[in-house]
Amino acid sequence: MSNILVVAEQRDGTLNRSTWEAVVGGQKLAKELDKEVTVLLLGKDIKDLADETAGKGVTVMVVDHEKLADYTPDGYSAAIKQVVEKESPAYILFSHTYMVRDYAPKLAASLGKALISDCIRYKMAGDKPVFVRQVFQGKIDADFTFDGDGPYLVSFQVAAFNADDLATGGSGVVQNAEVNMDGVEIRTKVLEIFEGVKQEVDLSKAERIVSVGRGIKKPENMDLIKQLAEALDAEIAASRPVCDDGWLPLDRQVGSSGQTVAPKLYFAVGISGAIQHIVGMKNSGTIVAINKDPHAPIFDIADYGVVGDLFEVLPEFIKSVKKL
């Protein structure tokens, strides 16, 4: 059957929350194209997780194999390739996580097919979906489509769809898929997984966050940010480059490699708004952005935008806030 296969992501028997977002994307697309969604789950001894997943009313296909106990690019791409060859899905959908970035291009190449990666949405042009992804770090959108025979591979950016929109109430069947992994050599040896940065600050609980990016230019200028945070009674956070340079500790980083936050007020100073940052804060209540580049993508998601020099505007703003 020409189906939509959504590849789930699990570690230690727990689904990555973005899997449900991809499933929602798959369900919406299925409705447009009159297709069915199957969620593909890979691992070892994952029966409980399969039942739990199917319990939400989605059809689950399970590949349970010794060689899939730990995630490896060799194991995952070989197993999914076999399922795809057997099932001939029309679409294979993923959430664009760090794991998917690690193996999905390899899978696509082994199938000789294109993967449209990190899509933010799709739109219909007649009966054909157009997939939208960002280029130039979110400054520009680009439209892509597929031509010829499938399967068509698409990964969606984290938070491209809302997991709460999941359509439940399907039959919730669990199917087992057999794969033959005898000839598959796993060349990567997986060692330990560990939490690198002890999260001492839980930014997700902050009501107000002042977040600082590359535009701050020098560590000496961080003092201005501290004054702003004090005036607003806010926690201080940063985009990745600021933490990489050691101007703030790593546990203050917001974005795909740091924390995900949704405060009442997110005040972005000198942050251009690369996708990796935006996925970590786009659900904030009120977003303020100060940037000298009027085309900075952060303005696309801001409620209030100041186009100007932060070193001129912030001292005045701090004064104004104190007067309120």
Binding site: G112, A114, V135, A142, F146, D147, F299, I301, V313, L314
Partner: peptide, 29 residues
């Protein structure tokens, strides 16, 4: 590979943004 690029464009805004520009003091207030 079946990939077809059609076009690029300025992102469609999903949010209405109020933009302030000009004199720093007025903007700040």
């Amino acid at each position: 590979t079946g990939l077809v690029f059609s076009k690029i464009y300025v992102p469609e805004k999903t949010k209405k943004t109020e933009i302030f520009e000009g004199d720093p003091r007025e903007v700040a207030q």
